[in-house]
Nucleic acid binder design. Structure first.
Lengths: 339, 339
DNA sequence: CCTAGCACTGTGGCACCTAGAGTGCCAGTC
DNA sequence: GACTGGCACTCTAGGTGCCACAGTGCTAGG
C-alpha cells in the first residue's frame, strides 16, 4: 500500500516534470493527479523517495525533479509500450514506402524519427559484418584503374578502386571475376577472408600483383570498421532544449558529430533485447551524460542487422519516444525484408 | 586623403570587432591602431561612416559595430587573399591524401574545413549535371530484380534497382547493356535523354516493359535534382557563438538540415567567379540572414564541378575563412584531377 | 582640417527588498 | 499507526534604485 503510492507519486513527478520541465511540488501534485491524500502526506513520501535517491531538490524552496535513477524506475515500470495511433502508423507507412533505395530508406527513417519524437535521431546502416556478399563485380575504369564493387544482401553497395601499373588484361579480369564470384558469392562477410586468401596462388606470377591488390581491397572492405555508417538528423531539436541545459549543447553536438561515438551508442546494446533505454550517466560517453538514448534493433528477415534510435535530454517524453522508436524499427524491418 | 582614412577606420573597426566581438569605440581604436589622429577625429569619421550605412551603434553609449554593408566593403577591399602558411598547406595535403574514395574525400574535406575555420563547413558532391557517364552496368540481383549502375567520371557511382514481373533473360540483358553502353558511355549527362529515348523501339514487344523500366530509371537518375548531395560538418561550432546570437541557433540548424537550402546556397553562385562571399541579408534564405557564407568552386580537370564553403556568423574572420576555403578548394580540385 | 573639452546618455553591476513557492516538522485526529 | 493542518523557515525570481563607466555629439579654438 505504502510502496504502491510512492510509486504512483514518482510516476506523477516524472510525467509532470517531463511535461512542464519545472520542478514539481507537493501541492501541484495533488492538484493534478487524483492521489486522494493531502500535500503533507505527499511530502513525506517525497522525502522518502529523495532518501532512496529517486528524486532530488534543486534547492530548498523548489519542488523535486527526478534523478537518473528515478527515470530508470519509471521506464522499467512501463511494462508494455503504448501502441501508436492508426493515423501515426499510416503516416510512417506512407512516408517510408516512397523510398527508392537503401540510402533513401535511411534518410527518410532518420527524418521520420526526428519529426515524430522532436528529438535527435540516429539510424545505423545495415551492418556489413552480419551480411552476406550477394555478388561481386570488377569494372575497368580505364587502362590502369579498376573498380571493385561488392553488392551486399542488405542492399548496400560497397565500391573501391585499385590502381595498377600494367594495363589491365580483359581476359585476366574475367577470370578473376569468375573465381572471386565462385569463392564469395552468397557467403557471409565473416568467411570471406579465408575464402580468398590463397586465391592468389592459382594465378601466373606476372598477374599476381593485380590479383593481390584486388584481394587486399576486398579484405579491407570486408573488415573495415569504418564501413559502419550512421546518419543523423534533427540536430536542430537540440536547440529547443536550450533553456534546460544551456551550456551543454556544444559537447553534445560534438559527440554527435563523431561517427565512432554514435556507433558505440548504437552498438553497445546487446542483441537479446529489442528496445533499450539508457538514461543520463548510464551511458559513459563524454558529453552525453545528461542525455538519454532510446534505441531499437531493426531486422532483415528476422535477423537483426542494425539499430536506430533517438537522443534527447534526460527529461524527455519516454513513453512517446519508446513507442515511436519501436514502431519505426518495425516498419523499417518490414521494408527491408519484403523488398 | 579623407576617404582613405575613413576606409582605414572601417577596416580597423571590422578587424577589432571580429577579434573581440565587442562594439568598438573611438578611443580603443586609436590605442590599438596607428592612425595618427585623436579619438575626436575618429568620432567624426565614424559619424560619417554611420551616415553612409557602414557601421551602426547598438545604443547611444556603446561603440560601433559594422553593418552587413560594412563587412561587404571590408571584404571587397581584400584584393588578394592571404596565402596559407607552409605548415597549413602541408597539413591539408596530408589529411586529404589518405582518402580512399570519393565519399572519403568529401568527408575529409568537410572535416578539414570545419577544423581550420572553426565554422560550419559544407561540401557539395561533384554535380552529375556537369558530368559524363563513364560506364553503365546492369547487374541482376535475382530473377526479378535488376540493379542499374552508372559510373560517372567524377568518381561517383549511382545505383538504382528495377523490379520486373517476368524473369530476367540473360541474353536480353547483355544485349541491352551493350546498346546502352554504346549510346551513353562517355557522354555528358545532358545528352543522355535524347540518346536513349527511342532505344526501346529496337527491342521485341515482349521485352519492352523491362527496357522501358530501365530507361525510366536512368532518366530519373540523370535528371533528378536530389542526386546533388551535400555533406555538412562542424555544426558544433555554431554553439560556440552562443553568446553572440543566442536565440538564432535553432533556425540556422534547421536551415542547415535542409539539403535543398544548402544546395541553393552553394549553387546560387555564378560560375564566373571562384571565391564568393555572401554577407548577412545578402543571402535570402530564411534563418540565415545573420550568417555569412564563404564558398568556392572546385574543379575536376579545370572544369568546375561543385562548390564547397563555410557558414558562420556575420562577424566571422573573413580573412582566414576566405584563404582557407580557397586553399582547400584548390587541393580538392587537384586531388580529383590527378587521381 | 584637426583637437580638446564638456555635457549628456544608455548599460551593467551591485545592493536591496519583497512575494511566492515549497519544504520540514510537530502536534493533533481518525 | 497513518494521515492532516498549521507554522516557521528558506531559497529564488524579479523588481527597484543607484552609481560608475564608456562612449558619444557638439562647440570653440589651434
Amino acid at each position: 500500500m505504502l510502496e504502491e503510492r510512492r510509486l504512483a507519486v514518482l510516476q506523477a513527478i516524472v510525467s509532470d516534470y517531463v511535461a512542464t520541465h519545472e520542478a514539481v511540488g507537493s501541492k501541484a501534485l495533488v492538484d493534478r493527479h487524483q492521489l486522494g491524500v493531502s500535500p503533507a502526506t505527499i511530502r513525506n513520501d517525497m522525502a522518502a523517495l529523495e532518501e532512496e535517491g529517486y528524486i532530488t531538490a534543486p534547492h530548498t524552496s523548489a519542488g523535486r525533479i527526478p534523478t537518473d535513477l528515478g527515470y530508470r524506475m519509471f521506464v522499467d515500470q512501463i511494462s508494455q509500450v503504448k501502441p501508436l495511433s492508426a493515423a501515426e502508423r499510416k503516416g510512417i507507412d506512407r512516408f517510408l514506402s516512397d523510398a527508392v533505395d537503401l540510402d533513401d530508406i535511411m534518410t527518410r527513417t532518420v527524418r521520420l524519427l526526428a519529426q515524430l519524437t522532436k528529438q535527435v535521431a540516429v539510424v545505423q546502416y545495415p551492418s556489413l559484418s552480419r551480411s552476406q556478399v550477394r555478388r561481386i563485380e570488377l569494372i575497368p575504369l580505364n587502362e590502369h584503374r579498376l573498380m571493385i564493387m561488392l553488392i551486399v544482401d542488405s542492399g548496400r553497395v560497397e565500391q573501391r578502386t585499385v590502381e595498377c601499373s600494367v594495363p589491365i588484361d580483359e581476359v585476366l579480369l574475367a577470370d578473376l571475376r569468375a573465381r572471386l564470384s565462385v569463392a564469395i558469392s552468397d557467403q557471409p562477410f565473416s568467411s570471406v577472408p579465408q575464402r580468398i586468401e590463397d586465391l592468389e596462388q592459382s594465378f601466373n606470377t606476372e598477374n599476381r600483383p593485380l590479383v593481390r591488390a584486388v584481394i587486399v581491397e576486398i579484405l579491407e572492405t570486408v573488415t573495415a570498421k569504418l564501413d559502419e555508417r550512421v546518419v543523423l538528423g534533427g540536430a536542430s531539436n537540440l536547440a529547443r532544449y536550450n533553456e534546460d541545459f544551456p551550456m551543454t549543447i556544444q559537447p553534445v553536438l560534438e559527440a554527435l558529430e563523431e561517427q565512432v561515438v554514435l556507433l558505440r551508442l548504437l552498438g553497445e546494446v546487446g542483441t537479446e533485447t529489442k528496445l533499450s533505454v539508457r538514461i543520463g550517466h548510464e551511458n559513459q560517453v563524454e558529453g552525453l551524460t545528461s542525455t538519454s538514448i532510446v534505441t531499437s534493433h531493426y531486422a532483415k528477415e528476422s535477423t537483426p542487422v542494425a539499430s536506430l534510435g533517438v537522443i534527447g535530454p534526460t527529461n524527455m517524453d519516454y513513453v512517446n519516444s519508446m513507442s515511436t522508436v519501436q514502431a519505426v524499427a518495425q516498419y523499417v524491418s518490414r521494408f527491408l525484408s519484403d523488398e
